[in-house]
Amino acid sequence: MKPFSIENRPELATYLSGFFLALLLTLLAFGIVCAQTGIALQPISFVLGRFPQGAERLREMPHWLVISGIFVLAVLQITVHLWYFLHLDFSPRQRMKVHAILFSLCIMFIIICGTLWIMQDLGNQMSPISSGR
């Protein structure tokens, strides 16, 4: 008798690969920001110092690419967490969970994009506050 059924028994390799993938994505995101701003973070600055050409290339990245890069890295890392730590996959036994997550992603999309849209629009329609106050 085992406390876990065969399908959902966790494996050491799963957690370790999830951890190292997440660590890599975290270091990449912080590395880009360190190279861009010149903030010294000890382990990252050391690596950037060893590869001056790569650091130079990161520093010269255009602003829009940096912001979308950080966004993409965050989405990738969240996917890694869902897959390796929360054991989400596309097997039939997980289908209800996937439906729940897709539904809440829908809600989150409406909330975030709707808020930004409406507040941005309101901000644009406000008359500027006089600086003398």
Binding site: T26, I39, I67, A74, Q77, I78, H81, F85
Partner: peptide
């Protein structure tokens, strides 16, 4: 616990990393 780490990924990326740029 895993879920809280997942939320933290959003916080450090969207709040701190974009905040210091």
């Amino acid at each position: 616990w895993h879920f809280l780490d997942l939320v933290w990924v959003g916080i450090f990326s969207m709040v701190y990393l974009l905040g210091v740029l």
